[in-house]
Simulated scan of single mutants.
Amino acid sequence: MVDYTFVRKDLTKRQTVIEGVLELQSPLRIGTGKSGGFDPASVVRDTVLKDVDGVPVIPGSSWKGVFRSAGERILRNKKVTVCSGVGKDYCLNNFRKFNDFQRSISHNVEEALKIFWDYTCLNCKLFGTMSVIAAVKFLDSRALEFKLGSRSMVAISRTEGAAARGALVQVEFVEPGSKFSFKMIGNNLPNYVIGYLLTIMKSIHDGYVQIGGHKTRGFGFMKFSSLRFIDKGEKKIGDEDVKVDMGEEVKGEGDKFFEQMKPFMEAFNNAKIPYPVH
């Protein structure tokens, strides 16, 4: 019988927390978004997203998007089937199982679990999909210490997708050296899935993944520090998992932390992910 613990939402056999500090290596811009057009004769101020106290934040939803898209590239490089999760490109829709899944939720939970297990990729199981919440939660990252800067840039027309003639935008950003909190909480994560998340984190730390806007201008590079791993509950989840037991807490700085966590990343590298069905 297949162990569906990883995708079950009605029990908790394991809780995993990874938290730490992010230090910006280049400017960061998580924008507030703009509605409507702009006046080509004016200099529009494009501000960074802040909380009610005026402190810059990186929303948890942004982190989930970053991790999902970065993870998609990692999984495709491993020749693992994965969907983008964007629009109609999600596994239950791609395998034409969404309606069957919806019908089974209300009258046959075991059948619903089987459909979800068999016909969804690792990203759907971990980050959630239509009608299913994620197994990992990202908290908003709030600036712990920061300095704001700004520079003038050519505005891009939303309708034409090209530089707007004569239009400048004053872009606000968080300056390099600023620090943000980071925290994610996982429920019932197998060791190879913890290794998958750590692999994504390391790709951010090593500069392969950028956060926020203006990436082509070199924005969005950051490194992790003061990292802490908390692992409570069972040390192996599911039949396809391998046991990794590093105790209930591991602490480390940047590169040293990722070196300590290699057993989890090796579990991911060596995992034979058995889903979705082909």
Rank of each mutant, 00 (worst) to 15 (best):
V7S: 03
T12W: 07
I18A: 00
G20W: 00
I30Q: 04
I30V: 11
S35C: 15
D39E: 04
G54I: 15
V57F: 12
G60R: 03
S62N: 07
K64R: 10
K64L: 11
K64G: 07
V66T: 11
F67H: 00
I74E: 04
T81I: 05
T81A: 05
C83S: 11
S84T: 11
V86W: 07
V86R: 08
G87N: 10
N99K: 15
D100C: 02
H107T: 05
V109Q: 11
I115Q: 02
L126G: 00
T129S: 09
L139Q: 15
D140G: 06
E145M: 12
R151V: 07
V154W: 12
T159S: 14
G166Y: 10
L168A: 09
L168E: 07
V169P: 02
F173L: 06
G177C: 13
K179N: 15
F182L: 01
Y192K: 04
G195F: 00
Y196I: 05
T199A: 07
I204W: 09
H205I: 02
D206C: 06
G207A: 02
V209D: 12
Q210I: 10
F219R: 05
F221P: 00
K223H: 08
F229I: 04
K235P: 03
V242H: 01
V244N: 01
V244F: 01
E248Y: 12
E249H: 15
K251Q: 11
G254H: 07
G254M: 09
Q260D: 12
P263G: 15
M265Q: 01
M265C: 12
K272A: 11
H278Q: 13
H278P: 08
